[in-house]
Design a protein around this nucleic acid. Sequence first.
DNA 1: GCCATATTTTTATGATCATCGAAATATGGA
DNA 2: TCCATATTTCGATGATCATAAAAATATGGC
Lengths: 107, 107
Amino acid sequence: MEETFVVQALSALAQRNRLQLFRALVVAGPEGLTPGALAEALAVPGATLSFHLKALLQAGLISQERRSRNLIYRADYAQMNGLLGYLTENCCQGQPCTALPVPACAC
Amino acid sequence: MEETFVVQALSALAQRNRLQLFRALVVAGPEGLTPGALAEALAVPGATLSFHLKALLQAGLISQERRSRNLIYRADYAQMNGLLGYLTENCCQGQPCTALPVPACAC
DNA sequence: GCCATATTTTTATGATCATCGAAATATGGA
DNA sequence: TCCATATTTCGATGATCATAAAAATATGGC
């Protein structure tokens, strides 16, 4: 995993609106959510929401699919797991650590 | 875990210098590293380094201890694990997921 | 007490980010 | 084709961040 990608992904998550957005999508699971549903859930104006969804999308943390008139956003669990794993890589030079279970979400 | 803390921690990690700093401390393990060693390892001026160490410290991701003339910085593994767990909390409403192993580093 | 070393704080500058109203665009149905 | 709905892009504003030189501070040894 690229350091540049990791920084971008962490930047994307390091903001209240976007963190809530991402978590909502993580909880929603494979069905995902539309911008409309998210805007209502988080009580954020459409333009602001779109701005933040774009950031998460460009960071590769969520995906977008058109479903007729709606868009559907979903969390990208693979990227998320890669990101989490990166932070603990080579922890303690392997020495006194419990073998690092990379956090897995297999939705 | 507080959302405010999570955002601050993610912000702290969402920067190249700080990410490298944190990872270096994660790899270093319980012995930690001094600012001098870190400055040399990352090739960053002292003032810049100190600025970033402070951010990680205030975010609770690392700890500081004075050891005579040197300071020693260490990664805070508990906070890191809490942070990682937060991102996957309530994933997919519990449904089709492999039970979430929270990533553990027990250094 | 005084010096050398290690580290932090101050300060200034330029760069990037968050917000959201208004305008623009896409989509499906009539 | 034309309208209504869903969503995004544009644009302006204020706020926050990264950098690093220079000055300030802490520590231990002499």
